[in-house]
Write a protein that binds this DNA or RNA. Structure first.
Lengths: 119, 119
DNA sequence: CTGTATCCCAATTGATACTG
DNA sequence: CAGTATCAATTGGGATACAG
């Protein structure tokens, strides 16, 4: 949570950006949204380059923010399942909007980069 | 640009998140959108906690991605103006959507945090 | 299996001073 | 004014290894 410093920016989207677009949050939410409720290891395999430490940190943050729910089953071996909450799922249209923008404008970004790097 | 590592996440929003929601980008875009074309120092004062080094870095990135335009006037003293481009302005509806989500759901996030911290 | 504990490294950030 | 240079500090992230 390194973005928290700055209230004086008065940028209204800053708080939600901090919650939704912190590192690893979108891939985790995406994995949970696409493949439904799943266990810690499944998530870890899906996000192949994440370490257990970091995955735990991000899941805890998402759980605290109410976007993800954690269910602990006291079995041997222990079983823990994560799923997206209703609140988390409410981000769906926003992500769809993001994809729409990307489809429409990412090529322009690419062109701008090429032009910039050429100049 | 620390998010670039991971293609295998297969999270479709990842690329656009990297472009639009890197640190400082939303406050900068917001300031340019709200107050129009302005000079380096004006921006620096508006984002009161940013250092010139970081502001330059972020502006260069935004310029490379085509979201911000830089105009250099060869005067004494030199004058440089930054403004949002059409491509940058095309993010407007997306930010509006973000604000809508925030208005509707940030209270729920706050409640989830309180509950989590209490538990 | 589901994490936690350490240690370490890399990358960002910031403070400060300085230049054209 | 509009940055750049340099250096210090912090932090997050990764690699293991290990515990319940």
């Amino acid at each position: 949570m390194q973005r928290s410093a700055n209230p004086e920016t008065a940028c209204p989207v800053a708080p939600v950006v901090e919650i939704v677009f912190s590192r690893w949050t979108t891939p985790i939410l995406w994995a949970l949204h696409q493949h439904g409720r799943q266990r810690f290891v499944e998530l870890q395999h899906r996000l192949s380059s994440i370490t257990p430490k970091v995955l735990t940190q991000r899941l805890r943050q998402l759980e605290r923010d109410g976007l993800v729910a954690r269910t602990y089953h006291a079995e041997v071996p222990p079983r823990v399942e994560y799923e997206i909450t209703e609140l988390g799922a409410s981000l769906g249209p926003l992500f769809a909007h993001l994809n729409t923008w990307a489809d429409a404008h990412l090529p322009a970004v690419e062109r701008a980069r090429s032009a910039y790097d050429a100049g």
